[in-house]
Amino acid sequence: MFDIITVPVDGSEYGYKAADVAIEIAQKFNSKIAAVHVLEEFSFNSYDSEEDSGNEILAKISEKASKVGVEVTEHLLTADPLRDMKFIVDQTHGDLVVIHAHGANNNRFVSFDENNVSDTQIGSVSERLLRTSNVPVLLVK
């Protein structure tokens, strides 16, 4: 049913939760995973440290998947996640995207009354991908 499951991961707990769901689906459908980590075009950190961090994030996904027999292709890219995620998904040839509702920078989604992330809000990258993707998108909360 799904040959390739594309999983954008950012190193957040939400991203790893989405990767876990993708691995479980890949096991059931004998699918491969395209794990994607995007290095932001403009960052205050050095490119080398960002690249090292991205490689560590992708390695965690690959290690977890390999333990259950799921093949992972790692994609470490420099891009703008908000602008480029649909293109990235298209380039990985994913039949399904499994993405988290909130990312590493969820400060924009904090409820000032309760000081936590609302269950009714989603991140900007996830929201745009839901609207523009040509393949099914599974949103993990």
Rank of each mutant, 00 (worst) to 15 (best):
M1D: 11
D3E: 15
I5D: 08
V7T: 08
V9W: 04
V9Q: 02
S12Y: 01
G15N: 06
Y16P: 02
A19L: 09
D20V: 01
A22F: 00
I23V: 10
I23P: 08
E24A: 10
I25T: 03
A26S: 00
Q27A: 05
F29V: 15
F29I: 12
F29T: 15
S31Q: 05
S31R: 05
S31M: 12
K32V: 04
K32R: 08
I33Q: 05
I33K: 01
A34D: 01
A35T: 07
V36C: 07
V36K: 09
H37V: 03
V38A: 11
V38K: 06
F42L: 12
F42Y: 09
S43C: 09
S43T: 05
S43M: 04
S43W: 05
F44V: 14
F44P: 13
F44Y: 10
N45V: 12
N45C: 05
N45E: 11
N45M: 14
Y47L: 06
Y47G: 00
Y47Q: 00
D48M: 09
S49Y: 04
S49L: 09
S49Q: 10
S49V: 15
S49K: 02
E50L: 15
E50P: 06
E50Q: 11
E51Y: 14
D52A: 11
D52N: 12
D52T: 14
D52Y: 14
S53D: 11
S53F: 15
S53P: 03
G54L: 08
G54A: 13
I57Q: 04
L58H: 11
I61Q: 02
E63A: 14
E63H: 04
E63N: 13
S66D: 06
K67G: 07
V68P: 07
E71A: 13
E71Q: 08
V72H: 04
E74Q: 11
L76Y: 12
L76N: 14
L76E: 11
L76C: 12
L76P: 09
T78C: 08
T78F: 00
A79S: 12
D80R: 09
P81V: 14
D84R: 08
M85Q: 08
K86W: 04
I88E: 05
V89R: 00
V89T: 07
V89I: 08
V89H: 01
T92F: 03
T92C: 06
H93I: 05
H93M: 05
H93K: 14
H93L: 13
D95L: 03
D95W: 01
D95Y: 02
D95T: 08
I99F: 00
I99Y: 00
I99V: 04
H100N: 13
A101P: 02
A101Q: 00
A101Y: 00
H102R: 05
H102Y: 06
H102D: 07
H102M: 13
G103A: 03
A104T: 10
N106H: 10
R108L: 12
R108K: 15
F109W: 14
V110R: 12
D113L: 15
E114M: 15
N115D: 03
N115A: 07
N115H: 08
N116T: 15
N116W: 11
S118L: 13
D119Y: 02
Q121H: 03
Q121R: 15
G123C: 04
S126F: 02
E127T: 10
R128G: 02
L130V: 11
T132Q: 12
S133P: 00
N134G: 14
V135A: 01
P136W: 00
P136N: 04
V137G: 03
L138C: 08
V140K: 01
K141N: 05
K141G: 05
